[in-house]
Design a binder for these strands. Sequence first.
DNA 1: GCATATTACTCAGTGCACTGAGCATTCGTT
DNA 2: AACGAATGCTCAGTGCACTGAGTAATATGC
Lengths: 157, 157
Amino acid sequence: MSAVDLSSHPGHLARRLQQAHYLLWNTMVSEETTSPQFAVLNALIAEPGLDQRTVGERVGLDRSTIAEVISRLSRRGLLDKVRDPKDGRRSLLHLTEDGVRTHRRISVRAARMNQVFLGPLSAEEQAVFLDLLRRVSDAAEGLRNPEGPLGAGTSSL
Amino acid sequence: MSAVDLSSHPGHLARRLQQAHYLLWNTMVSEETTSPQFAVLNALIAEPGLDQRTVGERVGLDRSTIAEVISRLSRRGLLDKVRDPKDGRRSLLHLTEDGVRTHRRISVRAARMNQVFLGPLSAEEQAVFLDLLRRVSDAAEGLRNPEGPLGAGTSSL
DNA sequence: GCATATTACTCAGTGCACTGAGCATTCGTT
DNA sequence: AACGAATGCTCAGTGCACTGAGTAATATGC
């Protein structure tokens, strides 16, 4: 008798947003390479030779998930995984030629998709939207990770 | 050499937002009952006796996913699944006493969590944020579902 | 130098989310 | 009544995302 309006629940909207994006990505960008996979490729373009854990940190994936994503990319020959001779625990990651090509191809298509995705908003609203998304995500991540390069006050309750 | 700033990719932010919410839900609301499960309970409080497909439509889950979520809720005794005598294809769903209690308990905790989740934004920003989330999600869903009660122009490129 | 802690990764288990294929039931025609 | 289409659900397969437990390698303390 006391049902709630889910459209006022940010978590529910976040999930729907993510699903909507997933489907749009699938149709407009790639059926093989997913958005998280692209994020990994992108991180390795920016900083080749990172280890798994650090890549996960950069793109926001935990140790287990990043391992699976990387294993798929490696299986498809988009990146190489080499044991660090200086530290036998790490695997160092580098994109292959194919990985670089895939990243370039997808970058273009992803940019197009983003325009469609944010199309219903005005340019100003898009900027606000991205800003709000960033702030809420960052803050929520900060709740679990009391560490931070900038150690700024994360709350003031 | 041409890495992109992921923080300008709405899809990446959407994923991070959803993950942040998932973790917060887990710590502040419930470890047993997930947010999608709560959405299903909520839909059945509002309209008892719905069939699977319709519940999935209400909460934004496809046929396969809704089947799994419902099977878990049913296994935990939170809802009953009865074959429709009028139409042998459908299963009609009703919450049990336990399901209603769980919904009530979680509603309260979810409301508290939402305040924390949106805490970093001012009241005005929260309203804007929810509005933008809704508009982008609705529009993106509309791209797959050319049907719509209002059939308004979805694009003008 | 050796025990201990930390670190990077792996593995098993759970849950969400989608597609494509298949099955049973119902509905619409004829 | 019988055929074929549509409908509701199930099943198999893939991928993301987390936790908790475990393994191997390095780093630290003494």
